[in-house]
Design a protein around this nucleic acid. Sequence first.
DNA 1: CCTACCGATCGGTAGG
DNA 2: CCTACCGATCGGTAGG
Lengths: 231, 231
Amino acid sequence: MRARVLEEATRLFAAQGYDGTPLQQIAEAVGVRKPSLLYHFPSKDALRQAVLDALLSRWADVLPRLLMAAGQGDQIFEGMVREAVGFFTADPNRARLLVRELLDHPQEMKVRLLTQLRPWIEVIARYLRRGQEMGVVRAELDPEAYLVVVANLLVTGIASTELLGVLVASEPDPERQVRELVRVAHDALFVSKEIVPGRAARAGVPPTAVAKPAGRAPARRGGARAARHGR
Amino acid sequence: MRARVLEEATRLFAAQGYDGTPLQQIAEAVGVRKPSLLYHFPSKDALRQAVLDALLSRWADVLPRLLMAAGQGDQIFEGMVREAVGFFTADPNRARLLVRELLDHPQEMKVRLLTQLRPWIEVIARYLRRGQEMGVVRAELDPEAYLVVVANLLVTGIASTELLGVLVASEPDPERQVRELVRVAHDALFVSKEIVPGRAARAGVPPTAVAKPAGRAPARRGGARAARHGR
DNA sequence: CCTACCGATCGGTAGG
DNA sequence: CCTACCGATCGGTAGG
C-alpha cells in the first residue's frame, strides 16, 4: 500500500507539482480516504521526501554498478548515457520530478547532490582527464562542468521531449530528439576525426581508444535502443 | 504600477511557482492590498499570462534582429548564443519561469512555442543545412533537433547554474559552467579540425567559412563576455 | 485603491 | 483504515 501511494504521488507531483497536488487527489488515485495517507506518512512534506528518496535511491545502485562494469575507460560514456536515457525515457515523470525539486527546494537538493552525486562526478572526471592525456577526449573540455552540463541536458531534455517535439517536426518523434541529445553529448566529448581525409586519422590518436561511433553510420547511437529497454 | 506588479510577480513565480505564490505575497511585495491587484488583472491566472507575455515578447524583438544582423551564416551561432546567454544570465528568473511554465502548462506552452518559435527554428535550420553542404557543420547533425536541444540546454543550464555549481567545484564559478555550456553547443555544431596535424586541415573545407573559434585558444568563447553585458 | 467579507479548499487531527 | 470535523488560507467579490 505504501508503494501504491508513492507511485501515484510520484506521477501526480511530476505532472502538477507539489503545491498543485492536494492529498485528496492522491488518495482518490490510490483508492483510499485522505486521512489514511497521513497514517502512512506523517505529513504531506514527508510524503514528498519519501517520493524523492525512492527516485534517488535507484541511482545510488545504478551508478556504482556502471562504473564497476565499464572495464575500459572509453566504454563509460556509452554505458552511462544508455543507462541514464533508459531510466528517464522509461518514465519521463522521473525527470520532471527532479527538475521540479531543483526549482522548488534548491537548498534541500543542493545537500542531496553534494553528498550523493558529487563523489561520482569526481571519479568520472578523473577518467575524462586520463582521456585527455591520451588525446581521445577534447583538450578544451572542462571535466566537472561537462558532466554537470550533460546530466542536466539529459534530465531536462527527456523531461520535455514530448512537449518540445512540436518544434522539431509536425509529427513529433521522441527517438529523433533523444538521438540528437546523445549525439550532442558525444561530439562535445570526443575528439572527432570525421573530416580528416584518409590516413591523417591515424596521426597521434590510438585507433582502439575512441571506439566505434565516430566513423560509422550516424544516428544509431544508443538513444533508440535505450528508449526501448524500458522499466 | 502595472509594471511593478509584473516585476514582483515574475520574481516570485520564478522562485516559488504559481501555486506556491499567493496573491497576498505579491501584493505585499508591491506595497498594496490584495484586491488592488485584481483591479489591474481580472484574475490570478490573467496575471500569470501577462507575466509570460512580457517575458516572451522580448524574444519576439531579439530573434528577428539577430537573424537580420548576422550577415555571414557562420556568425549566427555566436550572435544567437551570446544574446541568449546574456538574456538569461542577466536574470536567471527568466529561465526558471520558462521551465516552470513548460512543466505546469504544457498545452498552453505548446501553442506559444509553435506559433512564436517554430518559424525561427525553420529559418535557422536552413542555415545549418547550408553549413552542412559546405562541410562546416557536422553532417550527422539533425538541424531542427539540434536547435531544440541547444535552446533547452541554455535555458535549463542557466536556470540551475547557481544550484548545480556545488557539483563542479567547492567554490562555484558561474562563468566556468556557462563557458562549458557554450563549448558543448559549439563543438557539437561545427566540424572540428583540432586533431588534424598541419596541412590536412585544408582538405575540403573553405578556410574562411568555419571562422575563428575552432583553432584558437579554448575557453574564451562568449560565455564570459555575455555574462557581463547584463540587463 | 481600500475595508470587509465569502465560499471553497487546503493540510491535518480526534476518536474509534 | 474510516467518519467527522477544525483552523488557516486561498482566490475573488461587494461596495464604496
